[in-house]
């Protein structure tokens, strides 16, 4: 075998190996996806949406409490996290002028995006649950908001910087004050990108379980009072899946399916926004 043949042989071996590893990786992932879809669709029925949780063995048990609880917690978290994240991102992109401080804020946010979410749960437990004396939906929402802010901050920052500075200059030349330039010109120019960031931020926190375990805790019955312990799809999924009862486990799969589909749709919609913008 001459040198050239040897190189080609090595190339073929390595390329086959990495194709195989891609196949292994993908097959595991599609196995999980398949299991999720198969079990989820099997467990889905209309009762899940209209009934509350029931002891194992009861016919009419559902996930209404978890669906509504999840929605409330994520909505409150979004209501707090989105404005804070967008405004902080606005500061970084529009006002900081490349200062050292802005760089530090960017770096810390990047680190927080990958920090363990269960630690945020412990933190919120210490500052909200202990003083209040009980678990609450608010505590869960605060934990999720803390996780969401760095994500939205960083995407807003990046997206606003993509807006061409000539647009800003044109608006300034017309005599507009800076806040008007930002709100009416920069935000408008970056709308699709910022919106995508927000959707991805919501998708990310909606799937979080660990920070809710000891903040919003769980409840087997419908509760819309954010001041009380509240069910969420993720914590319910965890409790039901680890229970020995088959009907609870089925509900767990239904919850997993509904939540995953919700999160995947948010991700896909976010991507479409960006594609559409690029297409223009």
């Amino acid at each position: 075998m001459n040198y050239r043949q040897k190189r080609i042989a090595i190339n073929n071996i390595v390329m086959t190996l990495s194709t195989i590893s891609a196949l292994i990786g993908l097959s595991f992932l599609f196995w999980i996806l398949g299991v999720l879809i198969f079990n989820g669709i099997e467990a889905l029925n209309i009762g899940i949406f209209i009934n509350e949780g029931a002891p194992p063995g009861y016919e009419n048990s559902g996930l209404k409490q978890a669906l509504i609880g999840q929605l409330l917690i994520v909505m409150y978290a979004t209501a707090a996290g989105v404005p804070l994240g967008v405004l902080a991102g606005t500061y970084l992109s529009e006002y900081s002028q490349g200062s050292k401080l802005a760089e530090i804020i960017r770096d810390i946010s990047d680190i927080m995006m990958s920090a363990p979410s269960i630690v945020i749960g412990a933190f919120v437990y210490a500052i909200v649950v202990i003083p209040m004396g009980h678990f609450s939906g608010y505590a869960g929402a605060i934990a999720l908001a803390i996780i969401m802010i760095p994500i939205i901050l960083r995407t807003t920052d990046d997206m606003l910087q993509l807006v061409p500075s000539t647009l800003r200059e044109a608006a300034f030349a017309l005599g507009a004050p800076k806040y008007k330039v930002i709100i009416q010109v920069v935000y408008r120019g970056a709308r699709a990108g910022v919106l995508t960031g927000i959707l991805l931020g919501i998708a990310r926190v909606a799937g979080e379980t660990a920070p809710l375990l000891f903040t919003s805790f769980n409840d087997n019955f419908l509760n819309t009072d954010m001041n009380e312990a509240m069910a969420s799809l993720t914590v319910t999924m965890y409790n039901y899946a680890t229970s020995p009862y088959e009907d609870w486990q089925r509900l767990g799969w239904a919850a997993a399916f509904i939540l995953s589909m919700f999160i995947l749709s948010l991700n896909i919609i976010g991507r479409l926004f960006l594609l559409q913008k690029r297409g223009k």
């Binding site: 998708a203 379980t209 997993a256």
Partner: peptide
């Protein structure tokens, strides 16, 4: 393939745990 890998990264980890258990 790239997008489906990114989407799989978005699936909540609790689902991976549940799959692992069962």
């Amino acid at each position: 393939v790239g997008v489906s890998i990114e989407l799989l990264a978005a699936i909540p980890s609790v689902v991976y745990g549940m799959w692992g258990l069962f």
